[in-house]
Amino acid sequence: MSGPPPRPLLKVCGATAPGDIEAAATGGAHCVGLWHGVPGGPRELDPDTLTALASAARSAGLLAALVTFLADARATTELARRTGVGWIQLHAYQSPAAVRALREALLPDVRIVKVLHVAPGGGGCVERPLIGAYERAGTDLFLIDAATDDGRIGSTGHALDPGDVLALLPRMTRPFLLAGGLEPTNRPRYADVTRAPGFHGIDVDTAARSPLTGRFGVPEITALTRAWRTAPATGPARFRHPPAPLEPSR
């Protein structure tokens, strides 16, 4: 008999210091996002700091994810090899061709996460017609996030309409993470999303932070872990890949 389905993972995004890594691990997160190549981003890291924090994350039993707007496959591959990240999360609007070039250049155990941006007010998802092409190019995992009326993307704090998320799922054969204004209190709103077969976990920035310091907070991350019923991390090797196995990229 097969065992129970894997519990979803929790990714907290935008670590900038060792204390953020410690809070993420203590609070029960599985994955920590590290920004580089995000022009004007408030949590942008230089390559040396990114490398150090990725190492600290692995030592703490966390999966390190590079979060980037970069579209240059060669530069992104060099950075991934230097830092040892397990995931590369492509924000912005990189093309399927860019994903394919990255997939061909990367080590096979580095996962590619492509963000799909959903506009507010039923504005749809600009990448919707390309989902199949992204999968064929080598995307391992999607992340569904909110864009804003003024075009901002990434850690906007804006919540998605569950119906807009569900409307994308028939086009996808890869697992997905949910992002966009997620908090401990709004999990019931996304009950149908969390029951979808491809649901793989959540990605949180704002709600993982202490309102007093603006840094990752153990109480805040613990509250997310409990409310979204994610499983605690248990060691450095466990989250090299997502907890549910992914099919090979086609």
Rank of each mutant, 00 (worst) to 15 (best):
V99H: 05
A146Y: 12
H91A: 08
Y93D: 13
P184A: 14
R82H: 05
E104D: 14
R103N: 03
V38T: 14
P120D: 00
G14Y: 05
G201T: 03
A137L: 01
L45P: 11
K11S: 06
P219Q: 00
A60R: 10
P219S: 02
A73P: 12
H30Q: 15
T26H: 09
A54G: 08
S155N: 15
G28C: 08
A179Q: 08
T16N: 02
G181T: 00
G14F: 06
Y190C: 08
G198H: 00
S59K: 15
G37V: 00
G198Y: 04
G198K: 01
G84Y: 09
V193E: 01
C31N: 08
G163I: 05
D145A: 11
P197Q: 02
T206R: 10
L102T: 03
L169W: 06
P108A: 05
F176K: 02
C13S: 07
E183Y: 00
E104N: 09
E22L: 13
R209K: 15
A29H: 12
G132T: 13
E104L: 09
P248G: 03
R189S: 08
V110N: 07
D149I: 03
K11L: 10
S249E: 01
G154D: 12
F199T: 04
A237R: 10
P39K: 08
P197C: 01
G198A: 01
L169M: 13
G217W: 10
L177Y: 12
L70C: 07
A147I: 03
R238E: 14
D203A: 07
A29D: 14
L63T: 15
T213D: 06
L212T: 11
V126R: 15
A29C: 11
H158M: 14
T206D: 06
V38M: 12
A92T: 02
G84C: 10
L169G: 06
A57I: 12
P162T: 08
H30G: 15
N186Y: 05
C13R: 06
L90D: 03
E78H: 09
A237K: 02
A167M: 01
S210L: 04
V118G: 06
I221W: 06
R7L: 15
A64Q: 00
P6T: 04
P245K: 02
R240C: 11
S155T: 15
A29Q: 12
D20P: 04
A133H: 11
D140V: 01
V193N: 00
R152A: 15
I153E: 05
T225P: 00
I112K: 07
V67M: 07
R58Y: 05
A92W: 15
A56V: 02
A137W: 02
G180V: 02
V113R: 04
V126K: 14
T68H: 01
I202F: 11
C13D: 07
Y190L: 09
D164K: 09
A52N: 10
V193L: 01
D140F: 02
E104W: 01
P47G: 06
L106T: 07
L106I: 10
S95C: 04
